[in-house]
Amino acid sequence: MKEELIVSGRMNPGIDPYLHIWHWQIPLYLFLGGLAAGILFFTALYYILGKEKELPTAVKWANFIAPAALVIGLFALFLDLKHKLFFWQLYTTIRLSSPMSWGAWTLMLITPLAFIWSASYLRELVPKWDWKLKILYDFEALVIKYRKPLAWAIIFLSIILGIYTGILLSAFNARPLWNTSLLGPLFLTSGLSTGAAVIMWMSKDHAERALFSKIDLILITAELFFIIHLFMGFLASTQVQINAAELFLGGEFTVTFWVFVIILGLVFPGILEILELRGYKVPVAVPAILILFGGLMFRFIMVEAGQITRYLY
């Protein structure tokens, strides 16, 4: 038996009785950042592959979600800051050892690029749109002319953004649940999967929908594979990581994780997508919403549970 008590009565808000300094803002941002990364990745990828005509939703329309998601996500991050008026200090330095620092810089680059990319398609979406100023028309022409290098920049930054949402957590070795390098690829896959789900949901074209349904199935399989590896790694690791895994294998997050993330968020929408590809009539919104919901729940659970796990001494 081992019992440890803080006899001097430390009750620092946010720290005791268990760490809960990060609330809903961080998981919401991780979700929206991953979603934006996913959408922008497919947008840029299929533009580079020259599929603008075959896959209009992926290249032209879905990307309007990305800047909105990024702005809401950034606002959530801002709300999380406790010394808000000093937020600009993020942009006075680049600290490579801090994922939050290069994540902030990535967002600084990809957010305007997402806006510019979407703006260049705005007049196709809203034919009556008038930019009013000639300089804006000139700028639009310039962007359209250089869409290809822009797409390369977006694809590169979107992968960094997607991985960053996981690395942000895995850099903290004090929280054993987060401290695994698998979190980067896992969050990237999950982000790409939510992005593919949105494109699938928005698409009106049957072939495009089927393509993103297939992509999503591959990503769901990869995600399940990563999650199994995550737990295998934890269970073969040190006591603190075994304890972290046990939160999901009989502990307090067992039901929320397996029901909402694994079954409702991954397996069930995966089955629905298979049925749809086989020709059964499934409303496309159902698997798409379930995948988005699963991705959001996954991030909430990881952030919440990770803060409970700690070193024992």
Partner: peptide, 19 residues
């Protein structure tokens, strides 16, 4: 210089920091 992001609080194995 501190923006109150909480990263250092999350990173401390001793829970020695507070907001």
């Amino acid at each position: 210089k501190c923006i109150g992001c909480g990263a250092c609080i999350e990173s401390c194995p001793y829970d020695a920091r507070y907001s």
